[in-house]
Amino acid sequence: MAKTELQKYLDPKVLNKIRRLDLQARLVVEGFISGMHKSPFKGFSVEFAEHREYVPGDDLKHLDWKVLGKTDRLYIKQYEEETNLRATFLVDVSESMRYGENARRDQMSKYHYSACVAASLAQLLLGQQDSVALATFDEDLRSYIPHSSNPNQIKGFVHALDVSELKAKTSIEHICHNLAEKIARRGMVCLVSDLFVDIDGLIRGLQHFRHRSHEVMVLHVMDQDELEFPFQGNTMFRGLENTGRLTVEPRVLREGYLEALQKFCGEVKRRCIAAQIDYKLISTADHLDAALLAFLAARAAAGRKTGAKR
């Protein structure tokens, strides 16, 4: 597939037209990787573990030239660190994530976008022989797919995301505590959520992961409407997750709303940085590579840290 054609699947508007999540994830990853040639992110360790077949987008310097000379086939030398990556995706399936699903526009709902991001990352990681796990939650843990690096893992992964029902409130803290106890080996934890929770609870939960030496990254998914509040005319806002209803003239409140939102995001970001947690605010209107790049940047940073320790 031509590079540009693949890259277009990074656009959520385009991706929205594809119904199957697994296909979406694959297209995203392929589109992403085809644009990675100049990527500064290596993500490769020094300790050789095994070979794997070259896929387009892999750095050529990792090619095993000897194997190429002998067998005329392209293999990449894989290193121990990479194979050891255990990524756990925490995807928020609360009711608030539904926002955007009925909107008359060609954008994805927050949940759809989050699922797509999670599936794409899983696809990417599985493609690199890493192991991924998935936990969906609202106020409780709704499903958990344990770690596996089997390429078929993606099917269960996608299925779990597909069947989730978005109807309950969000509660992150105790989920984090539960999972932190559950995940034995250290790895990477990626929380994909709109974070409509108490900041203190959120940070406490995430710090539990940090305590367990996990790399933690937060992908804060917000709808473009939520970021810009572009409404006009008298509107009754019916709160998802039973947050009440409010009839107002939105233009009048826009300034105050944006201020409150920025304050919240700023606070979350500040606290995350303080807790050495990677934080990335993503709009559902952004191309998906933003999320993937953020993830890889976090990975690279983690790699550099472990490299530095060694």
Binding site: Y99, N234, M236, G239, L253, G256, A260
Partner: peptide, 24 residues
């Protein structure tokens, strides 16, 4: 009359909206 006529929107970020209303 305008107060009786409005659009209905399901809204997730009520938290910020309520805060803005409280302040303003």
């Amino acid at each position: 009359l305008n107060r009786r006529r409005f659009k209905v929107l399901d809204w997730a970020a009520m938290k910020f909206l309520l805060e803005s209303v409280r302040k303003n």
